[in-house]
Design a protein around this nucleic acid. Structure first.
Lengths: 145, 145
DNA sequence: GACAAAAGAGTGCATATACACTCTTAACGT
DNA sequence: ACGTTAAGAGTGTATATGCACTCTTTTGTC
């Protein structure tokens, strides 16, 4: 199998990124009935859990660049799933879910659970947990060095 | 730590993608002296190993969409690190490294080894191998279902 | 209180990603 | 040989990603 190319050399970066492409397609397909993509689901979910977060803290929670977040919010704003509100400090912008956003999130959560379940079932619960741990440490390592 | 948000729910897709962002930044920085990015290194490396591959087989080897590959080749073509040649079958396009491309690849390989070594050292050799295995299976799972 | 420094956030540019669609050329069936 | 089908690859559009730079507002210093 040619797919083993760079993976044959054991490049963690390549392996993770290739897997990320597969994950994106997998979750995008699973969440399509809700009208959002995988990254957008993670975004809505974070906004819901953090309750009116600022851009900076939201970006950090998601582990993505602040400027990437700004642009990723755009299509969700267009769909009216969330709105940006100015804070008391007028430099700040807070992200708030709309009712439509909450409804979409709720629908997406059910779809996510099914999709997630299939992966965990296929990989095994222990191995899934272990993989999450390994990825967390790898990510931390890459940011340290 | 807020970073645990969606990861707290153990979403494999989110964890892999967040890790991919970190890997991209890590390897991009490490390879900067060679003038290329992480994805471009993987691409050059694959072209080198496959020897004059067609678009289809190269895309499959890298686990990325055929149309993504077309565009990812563009900046490397501009830098004259590779060229596209028509095949005997004139529908086909073969990718070939230039001398400059080979030189860049060689330089990048040394930088990659150092960067890779730091990650493997930090994570441990056994755990690194295990992580690669887990990612391979996860990727296969996502493509199956 | 005025001015410099710092914090919060957006833009310009470039790459990465892939689906739907189109174009060109080869293979095939009669 | 001709027309249909299939194969190989590129484009249009949209999202994802982040660095360098800029803009606005607040904080801090005197």
């Amino acid at each position: 199998m040619q797919t083993a190319l760079a993976a044959a050399q054991g490049c963690l970066g390549f392996a993770v990124r290739r897997s990320a492409r597969a994950m994106a397609q997998y979750y995008d397909a699973a969440l399509a009935p809700a009208g959002i993509k995988g990254t957008q689901f993670a975004l809505l979910n974070a906004v819901f859990l953090l309750e009116r977060p600022g851009m900076q803290s939201l970006a950090e929670a998601l582990g993505m660049d602040r400027t990437t977040l700004t642009r990723n919010l755009r299509p969700l704003e267009t769909q009216a799933l969330l709105v940006l509100q100015a804070g008391a400090d007028r430099r700040e912008r807070h992200v708030v879910l709309t009712e439509a956003g909450l409804a979409t999130l709720t629908a997406a959560q059910r779809l996510w659970e099914q999709a997630h379940g299939r992966l965990v079932h296929g990989l095994g619960a222990d191995r899934s947990r272990r993989l999450l741990d390994d990825l967390r440490d790898l990510t931390a390592l890459a940011k340290d060095v």
